[in-house]
Amino acid sequence: MRVAFDIDDTILIPSVVSGFGNDTPNYDTITVLRWFQAQGHTIILWSGSGIDWARTWGEKFGLQPFEVIPKDARGAIDIAFDDCDVALGTVNVKVKRIKNGISRKELNETKRPPQTP
């Protein structure tokens, strides 16, 4: 199967939400991703913020192996995990957004890929 995971608010908890001053992994969702990997399924990462954003965070969180495709590429995705209501896969799973009452507007307007050492 081809299983896709969004980045923001699905794999990544934004700093504006975590309160830690930096973006942090969503370990609950990453555990699900790792289970699908262990079963031999193909993992897809995507983001409305673009391919570079998805690739950078996938590498930073050590989620290899994975493919990266544009989020609007809806070809042959069996299961899609996202924090929004989407119809991107045959089956779509909405991940609970942490502290949904906190606005992400400013974050979305200013975000840049993380710096790698």
Rank of each mutant, 00 (worst) to 15 (best):
K105R: 14
I102G: 06
Q64T: 12
E106L: 15
R74W: 11
V16M: 02
N92M: 02
W46A: 13
G58H: 08
V16H: 13
G58C: 10
T90A: 09
E106S: 13
F61H: 04
V86M: 05
K94I: 12
V17D: 03
Y27N: 11
N108R: 11
I11D: 07
E106P: 03
G89Y: 07
F81W: 12
G89I: 01
D6Q: 06
D8I: 05
M1F: 00
I11V: 15
F81V: 08
K105V: 13
T110W: 03
Q37K: 15
S47F: 05
I43Q: 05
V17H: 14
E67A: 02
L107T: 10
K71M: 05
W53K: 02
I51T: 13
E106K: 14
S18W: 04
T24Y: 05
G40C: 05
G40A: 11
F81T: 05
K60W: 03
D52G: 07
W57M: 01
V93Q: 10
T29A: 08
V93S: 03
A54F: 03
R74N: 12
L107S: 10
G62W: 02
A76K: 09
K111E: 10
A54I: 01
D23N: 14
P70T: 00
R55D: 15
D83A: 07
I69Y: 13
S49N: 15
S103F: 02
N100P: 14
V3G: 01
D78S: 06
F61K: 02
F36E: 06
I43Y: 09
I51V: 15
I77G: 05
T116I: 15
I44K: 00
V3K: 04
T29W: 07
K71T: 08
F81I: 09
A76E: 08
R104Q: 10
L88R: 14
S103T: 09
T90C: 01
D8C: 00
P113K: 06
V16W: 04
I69M: 11
I44Q: 02
D83K: 04
L63H: 06
G50W: 04
W53V: 02
T31P: 00
D78I: 06
A76V: 03
L33N: 07
G58K: 14
W46I: 01
G101E: 11
E109K: 15
F81H: 04
R2I: 07
V32P: 01
W53A: 00
T110P: 01
E67T: 00
D82I: 01
T31Y: 09
S47E: 05
K96E: 10
N108P: 00
V16A: 04
V16K: 11
S47L: 02
A87M: 14
S103R: 07
G19V: 06
N108M: 13
F5G: 09
